[in-house]
Structure formats: structure tokens, C-alpha cells
């Protein structure tokens, strides 16, 4: 197998990974899956960087990949923290829920119906009674669907 066909193979894989990631990023509504898709885009880039480095016979590509992975990890950590924060408040991972900010005269954009709001009564975990049950914050129960 010569160098050029090796390069082509790796670049194709890289482009496919990037493309799948991009499509996933644009089409998914689950926040965690969206960030997974971004990671996949970055993996695609990594594969093509390594392939180019091998082809040009230098370390530039691999160095880029190492730095990129570190940066991507930071970004993913921040994103996960934000997602957790939002999830704690709304109890949903669907990004379409978050449309509070939009132009004044625009309706909410919904490509497929949003899941109906859960109106089940609050279910508390069934633990062995110990002590006195704490008082529930009515405000908290209003926006939290579960604990």
C-alpha cells in the first residue's frame, strides 16, 4: 500500500466521521447527544490530522491532535456542567425546551411536538422513615419534575 492511497483512506474516514458528527449536531435535540456529535466531529478532524502528519512525515499533525483533545475535553466538561445545571432546573434534556429567548413577535419553533409537560404528582423516593419529613419547597416542586 503506498503513501497516497493510505492518505486517501484515512482522509475518507476522517471526513465521514466529521460529516456524521455534523449531521448529528444539526439534527439531534438531546443536548448530550449534540455534544457527543461535536466530539465525533473532532475525532474526524483528529484522524485526518494524523494522516496528514504521516504523509508529510512530521509531527505537526499529532501535536495538533494532542492539543485538540485536551481543549475538546475542557469544552465538554464545561458543556456537561451547563447541561446538568439546566437539567436540574427543567428536568429535560430536550434543547427545544429552551426557547425563552427569541424575537418578540416570533412563535416558538417546534419541528416535532414537544413532549407534554409531566403532570404526574411528585413521587418521593421510598426510604425507610427516619426522623421528620422535611418541608417541601412549593416553588421547587413547581419546576422540578422529579428529584
Amino acid at each position: 500500500m503506498n503513501e497516497v492511497s493510505l492518505l486517501h483512506g484515512f482522509l475518507t474516514i476522517g471526513a465521514l466521521l466529521f460529516g456524521i458528527g455534523l449531521i448529528g449536531f444539526l439534527s439531534r435535540r438531546n443536548m448530550i447527544v449534540m455534544f457527543l456529535a461535536v466530539e465525533m466531529m473532532i475525532q474526524g478532524v483528529s484522524v485526518s490530522f494524523v494522516a496528514w502528519g504521516r504523509y508529510h512525515n512530521n509531527w505537526d499533525g499529532q501535536v495538533m491532535v494532542i492539543v485538540m483533545l485536551a481543549v475538546a475535553a475542557c469544552e465538554a466538561a464545561i458543556a456537561m456542567a451547563l447541561i446538568l445545571m439546566v437539567f436540574e432546573r427543567s428536568g429535560k434534556l430536550d434543547i427545544a425546551v429552551h426557547q425563552r429567548y427569541r424575537e418578540d413577535n416570533q412563535p416558538e419553533y417546534v419541528d416535532r411536538d414537544l413532549p407534554p409537560p409531566e403532570d404526574k404528582a411528585q413521587v418521593w423516593p421510598n426510604l425507610t422513615p427516619a426522623g421528620v419529613e422535611p418541608e417541601h419547597d412549593p416553588e421547587e416542586t413547581a419546576y422540578r419534575s422529579h428529584v
Binding site: 476522517g14 466531529m41 473532532i42 478532524v45 485526518s48
Partner: peptide, 8 residues
Amino acid sequence: GIMLYGIS
């Protein structure tokens, strides 16, 4: 992510 692919 898109910028990175451009850089590569």
C-alpha cells in the same frame, strides 16, 4: 469543530 476541520 467546523473551524478545526478547515484548519486540518
